[in-house]
Design a protein around this nucleic acid. Structure first.
Lengths: 148, 148
DNA sequence: TTCGATGCAAAGAATTTGCACGCCA
DNA sequence: TGGCGTGCAAATTCTTTGCATCGAA
């Protein structure tokens, strides 16, 4: 829609955080950068793992707290793909919006986008009894590998 | 699509169970009947609660085991509406297929159906890298009550 | 110096597993 | 009668909370 500078999602997020009265903090910064570098949603534990190795180590509790705050501010989206574990990914304006394919056999998760689907959702949103702010679509099935 | 007798979902389910080599069992029966009588998805704990009161009491572990088996057999669908708790509902052929609206403020869940959405999904399913067997759509937002 | 940010460990909540007994086929 | 179905309780796994300390403004 609007032509926005892709001034790294991290910067934008930090700005929003500052604007809402948050101080800096190394843990949050590391977490934001990790999320930004990912291709698809990560779970809290995967984040802890990734950060333990490289970057800056961040306590598990902090990860949950930070993700919770980021979600509340609309900076990340929590996605539930049915593996008893929440996953999070950056919420970018316009570009980057996608949904998920899940292989119920091996658990792999892949992102996909579909214009028709988004249009259907937009139309639909106007006539449901709630004020829609977000939507989440998950297609379950068997991936090439597991299809046999 | 096909004109199917609505010979109660419970009966059909019991038949599938029998066909796949399962014995009868009172707990499963009670759980099936409860699910069949519901208007929307229930969580395992809600099921335990409902069964504790009336019907036949069923142990929590059994509820999880039974739901797991029913899901594997394609008799119920697990829906994740993002409240750190899985919900289950009967999977009926054709009629009854719906998706969910979730109020992120009060947590109420409402079912909805949309033809356009289903068509978009069907088309889309043909060109994604997995063999789609199920799909789940959740719209998040604020309900009339919480909209203020 | 002040108060939010973070780490650590214990607490909680949902779900799973182990094992013994009861009941259907 | 044999083995699945079920209950009970302990164990796991993911997430949250309590509290002390560290660090940014």
């Amino acid at each position: 829609m609007a032509a926005e500078r892709t001034a790294s999602w991290v910067d934008g997020a930090l700005q929003v955080l500052a604007a809402s009265g948050h101080r800096s903090g190394g843990a949050r910064r590391a977490l934001l950068e990790l999320l930004d570098s990912q291709r698809c949603a990560l779970s809290a534990l995967e984040i802890e793992d990734a950060l333990r190795t490289s970057e800056r180590r961040v306590a598990r509790a902090s990860i949950y707290r930070i993700l919770d705050e980021l979600e509340r501010l609309g900076l990340v989206q929590k996605v539930e793909v049915g593996q008893a574990m929440a996953r999070y990914e950056p919420l970018r304006t316009g570009a980057g919006h996608h949904h998920h394919l899940v292989c119920d056999s091996c658990g792999v998760i892949m992102p996909f986008t579909d214009r028709g689907l988004e249009e259907a959702i937009t139309k639909l949103s106007r006539r449901v009894p709630i004020e829609v702010s977000e939507h989440e679509i998950v297609l379950h099935g068997a991936c090439e590998e597991c299809k046999d």
